[in-house]
């Protein structure tokens, strides 16, 4: 039996009926067409599906869409405002924090929560905060620099 849900995604309210087993990431990608959130594994490991739910970074592959009923979600598509990049997005661009780009949305979302909680993280704190996000391209070197860039810019 399909269940009605109402979610706010990137400031817009959506109401849909979904199959209970539909994962939140599937809802975002297939129902709303927001394909900026990715699926990289089936074990809640890689973090490519990371979004913000009510301000907290969560793995949208390990949530049912029905569990997000009433929640406010922020995905990669909603981070830039009026065409202006968020400092984390800018940091990833300036510091070459991405290569293939597949892990990037999840990585940026995880970094977003980190900087909300800790405005000036050191390298160790950044690496620890990103432990739920795999990247196979960058060796994380420039991802760390990207987050540092963003922290500096936000604090300015």
């Amino acid at each position: 039996m399909e269940i009605p849900i109402k979610v706010t995604v990137n400031g817009e309210v959506y109401e849909h009926r979904v199959e209970p087993r539909m994962l939140l990431v599937t809802f975002l990608r297939e129902v709303l067409g927001l394909t900026g959130t990715h699926v990289g594994c089936d074990t809640s490991s890689c973090g490519a599906c990371t979004i913000l739910m009510d301000g907290k970074a969560v793995k949208s592959c390990t949530l049912l869409a029905v569990q997000a009923d009433g929640a406010e979600l922020l995905t990669m598509e909603g981070l830039a405002r009026n065409g202006e990049l968020h400092p984390i997005q800018e940091g990833f661009w300036r510091e070459h924090g991405l290569q293939c780009g597949f892990c990037t949305p999840g990585m940026i979302m995880a970094a977003y929560q980190l900087l909300e909680e800790n405005a000036s993280p050191d390298e160790k704190e950044i690496r620890r905060a990103l432990e739920g996000n795999y990247c196979r391209c960058t060796g994380y070197h420039n991802i760390v620099k990207s987050v540092q860039y963003a922290a500096k810019k936000i604090n300015r």
């Binding site: 394909t35 900026g36 699926v39 598509e77 981070l79 830039a80 997005q89 661009w93 991405l98 780009g101």
Partner: peptide
């Protein structure tokens, strides 16, 4: 980079 950091890239599954 812009398409990748704004969630607008197109991978096959997209």
């Amino acid at each position: 980079d812009r398409r990748f950091i704004t969630g607008k890239a197109t991978y096959t599954d997209d």
